[in-house]
Nucleic acid binder design. Structure first.
Length: 541
DNA sequence: CGCCAGTGCGCC
DNA sequence: AAAGGGCGCACTGGCG
């Protein structure tokens, strides 16, 4: 069964819309959801316009839900599938389209940017002469109908369920937070940088390196300015095309070493330094803002805090609570396995039945595991340099179906067509700019670029679907109080009491298996998900 | 002053 | 060694 949920613009109240069409106003929404008759609590699908607007408040009152249908996320997926990519996807917009009213822009598109301002800027639209509960209910019914008319409604329903579950998980991860020891983080920064500087100053070790750089060049140079660095090298008689670290590494000049050291530390300082901690870490928890489906491929993005780019070095600060542990699991070689399963390539699927897929493929590539890996990555990314052409020729011969699968996706992209993931996420259409370019002198290049994008899209998007499905299942298998606290494309982290370690590890294995069956049915492809329990994230690999 | 593109680099 | 896909974010420096 489903229940439509709306929250009052002010206060803790809201409405519950029942399947028979009646709408009840409740003074305390979280309480009403939490006290829903236990017998069917797990069976309820809570339908709401936007998880980010409704769920945090509910969580804040200590209530969690099992399943939901996020109307805005679903609308985005449906619009893409219907060739209307990019149109506003809020429940209000969907309702307006349904009835021929003027379609309001999405609020996040209007407000955009700043943390915490996402939904505060303007009061809720007055509506279209209909209560919000009726509005959401009408859009929900319409969406069910549209899903039913798609080519693969069953798969798309899985996609919608996974995306909606992802929204719940993202909200919960943001709410509960990832363990982050401020004291460890501070000690690490102090060791590397030399203590927190006064406002407007560089940390001492950073300043020392900057001074070394200036001394080496015999002139003042801002190490944060690529332009100034290039000029400084020029006046030393050296021409560098850029200041990328791998370029500078090859340059013979005394300024290079301190400069590279500076760049590395400066990044830590500005990205994950004290200012970052002030903003994002409270009470030994890092609370990130995830954006479900924020990447066109369906991967998650972040809107602040950089949760998906935590430097390996900083993982020292991620430490389980006393008596608790971190169970960290990542899917090994996820993308080639996804390709094997999707393409139905017998040979590749057999290799993907092994724990080390690349080793299993090595035979086909002259016994070279590295060659097999480059061949697979080139096939999935559209690589053309080095040995790629030669290795791709081997792949074409030995794994023709997998080869054809990515080639077809690339060709579709080059021709300006849309491609779809396994569950039905649709790639964005080519931009107007691309259409101009493609018929001009730079046409071949633009065409190839888009081909590489669509080639990768089908694999990356399906990998994202597998990972989100796994998480959605895992969430239901976790014993209380274990919690998902981190997710990064193909890696999950669960924070749990020590005595739940074994249960959590097997829950992860089960979830990986169930996700594989749900998506691909009876495939020989295996998706190994090795889980390791650690006290500190840095010890996970 | 804010805005924006370019650069560079962290993660998968 | 540094190519091929996807991101976010800090910083510089030019512009209005």
């Amino acid at each position: 069964m489903h229940v439509v949920v709306t929250e009052d613009p002010e206060g803790p109240g809201g409405t519950l819309g029942h399947e028979n069409g009646t709408v009840t106003h409740v003074p305390d929404l979280a309480e009403a959801i939490g006290s829903w008759p236990e017998s069917d609590h797990r069976e309820v699908r809570w339908v709401w316009g936007d998880t980010r607007r409704v769920y945090p408040g509910v969580l804040g009152r200590g209530v969690r839900v099992g399943r939901c249908h996020d109307v805005a996320l679903t609308e985005g997926l449906l619009l893409g599938a219907e060739g209307r990519y990019g149109e506003p996807r809020s429940a209000e917009a969907a309702y307006a389209r349904l009835h021929g009213f003027a379609v309001p822009e999405d609020r996040e598109a209007v407000v955009e940017g700043g943390q915490g301002t996402l939904f505060e800027a303007e009061p809720r639209e007055a509506g279209f002469g209909v209560g919000e509960a009726e509005l959401v209910a009408a859009v929900y019914q319409d969406q069910l109908g549209r899903i039913g008319r798609l080519k693969e409604p069953g798969r798309f329903r899985l996609l919608v369920a996974a995306e909606s579950a992802g929204a719940l998980i993202a909200a919960e991860m943001g709410f509960f937070g990832m363990p982050w020891r401020e004291s460890v983080h501070d000690a690490l920064l102090t060791e590397l940088l030399g203590g927190r500087p006064a406002h407007g100053m560089r940390p001492s070790k950073l300043q020392a390196l900057a001074d070394e750089v200036a001394a080496a060049f015999g002139q003042a140079v801002n190490p944060d300015s690529p332009q100034q660095i290039i000029k400084a090298f020029k006046s030393a008689g050296l021409t560098v095309p850029s200041t990328r670290s791998w370029v500078l590494k090859e340059v013979d000049h005394p300024g290079v070493k301190p400069l590279l050291a500076y760049k590395e530390l400066a990044r830590l300082y500005s990205f994950h330094g004290w200012v970052w901690a002030d903003q994002w870490v409270k009470e030994d928890r890092f609370r990130a803002e995830y954006v479900v489906g924020g990447v066109v491929s369906g991967r998650w993005a972040t809107s602040g805090g950089g949760a998906l780019q935590i430097p390996k070095l900083m993982r020292r600060a991620v430490v389980a609570d006393e008596g608790w542990t971190l169970v960290v699991a990542d899917a090994a070689q996820l993308e080639p396995r996804v390709l094997a399963a999707m393409a139905g390539d017998g040979g590749l699927a057999r290799a993907a039945g092994e724990i080390d897929l690349y080793a299993a493929l090595a035979k086909a590539f002259g016994g070279q595991r590295d060659a097999a890996k480059i061949a697979m990555l080139s096939a999935m990314y559209g690589g053309t340099s080095g040995d790629a052409p030669k290795l791709l020729a081997v792949m074409r011969q030995r794994f023709p179906q997998a080869y054809a699968f990515v080639e077809d996706a690339a060709r579709a992209g080059e021709e300006g067509q849309l491609v779809r993931s396994w569950l039905g996420r649709t790639s964005p259409p080519p931009s107007a700019r691309w259409r101009e370019l493609v018929s001009g002198p730079e046409g071949t290049r633009a065409s190839r670029d888009r081909g590489r994008f669509t080639r990768n899209f089908v694999v990356q998007a399906t990998a994202a679907e597998w990972a989100t499905t796994l998480m959605a299942i895992l969430r239901h298998h976790l014993p209380d109080p274990a919690k998902l606290v981190f997710f990064q494309h193909d890696e999950v982290m669960v924070h749990c009491p020590l005595d739940q370690t074994t249960t959590v590890r097997s829950a992860i294995a089960t979830a990986a298996d169930e996700a594989t069956r749900l998506l691909f049915g009876d495939t020989p492809v295996r998706f190994p998900m090795e889980a390791i329990a650690v006290t500190c994230y840095a010890d996970a690999k």
